[in-house]
Design a protein around this nucleic acid. Structure first.
Lengths: 217, 217
DNA sequence: GCCGTTATCTATAGCTCAATAGGTAGAATT
DNA sequence: AATTCTACCTATTGAGCTATAGATAACGGC
């Protein structure tokens, strides 16, 4: 018969030794977009032939999924660890921002591809990956709600909109942090301050009352 | 000879009656991205044949440029009018945000295409269009600097980073304002508040000292 | 009632691209 | 030493896409 049942099982295994290949894909996808990039472009980066790529992935779309997966990896876990840890809500928020921006330094291409190209994933993997995003939003929003409950944050804060604002602001960094020559550490700090205090100057606060005045929990 | 000098001059004129065509292009580009969309897709939206599109534009890239132009149109002028008008810096900032978000309501597709696809424009038109962006950033930054000078805003504010944060936050709205069912008016208000005040609750300010305590100018 | 213009159409050239088939040199395994 | 596996290669197919060429139907002006 025409069946070669091994091949499909085989094909999914040798991916272990392929980090270079997906890194090249990430670079190319980040630069030209998924549809704007050809598999030839990826091969050129690696110095191999176009067809040789198919030893490492079964389709261009699978390559995109692998890149996107590395683009979100760890975000949720890191955020959850911070949210369920110690500290005031304001402290947690600052640390969330910092932790959210730090991957830009060492795998910016992956993050950019996730942010800009995930829409071109086939429906199924898009939904699978989308869950991480929504989970992350939930973690951020819970910290905001906690802050409101504890009286640290404004009672009239729309936490949903605040999350979207915050993530929009943070994710946009991926778009310019190369062109602007500035360390992400610096950006994290400034953003945390901006989110907490805004731009307005206050009639200096007598006591720096950041500790929650309400009862525990 | 082989020259048909009329044709190229002709080609650029009948565009007057073509708003439907670029709107269809905007919709398709917004949905699938420039490279992910085919001219066939655009024709399908309009119910005409693929080749007929070339009566309205000379190339797919020109179509993208036309869409992008409508995606930025007016932003700079509106912002400049606000910046050079009356009011406190905080008021101006709030109005800038509102004016920046309002085009999303009636030409969201154009704005989205400008934001996400302008990178795929040919170098020349990309640079031409990029000037509007940079001009807009400058207007925003000048309002921020004015606020600092007048003592309305924090003296230690990094105005460049604040602009990027603010625009990142605002531009991200294009990505979700459909899915989240919320009026942009509402978003503008909440964002303006967020930018000014941040999320923190203050030990209630005695006097709502928003008027500049410094000398005029 | 002829003529130019406008807004389409059909047909197709020419190209790029993803993906498959099948081969092979060298390293590792037995 | 023979065999298997790994990491490529060459060659090609077939689909899809942009853009051009040339025809035409409807219509308004003269």
């Amino acid at each position: 018969m025409t069946v070669i049942p091994l091949s499909s099982a085989r094909r999914s295994s040798p991916r272990r030794r392929a980090p270079e290949i997906i890194e090249a894909a990430a670079r190319v996808f980040a630069e030209r977009g998924f549809h704007g990039a050809s598999t030839q472009d990826i091969a050129d980066v690696l110095g191999i032939r176009q067809a040789s790529l198919y030893y490492y992935f079964a389709s261009k779309e699978e390559a995109l999924e692998l890149v996107c997966l590395q683009g979100v990896a760890g975000y949720f876990e890191a955020a959850k660890a911070i949210a369920s840890g110690k500290g005031t809500a304001a402290d947690k928020l600052a640390r969330l921002v910092k932790s959210h921006l730090s991957p830009l330094a060492d795998r910016g291409d992956f993050v950019r591809v996730f942010l800009n190209e995930r829409q071109h994933l086939p429906a199924e993997s898009r939904r699978r990956i989308g869950k991480w995003s929504r989970g992350l939003e939930r973690v951020f929003e819970e910290v905001l709600k906690e802050g409101v409950r504890r009286g640290e944050f404004r009672a009239d804060l729309d936490t949903r909109l605040a999350v979207l604002a915050l993530l929009g602001m943070a994710n946009a960094v991926a778009g310019w942090h190369r062109a602007e020559e500035i360390a992400i550490e610096r950006v994290s700090g400034e953003f945390a301050r901006l989110i907490a205090d805004g731009v307005l100057k206050r009639p200096q606060p007598r006591a720096r009352a950041r500790q929650a005045p309400r009862s525990a929990r």
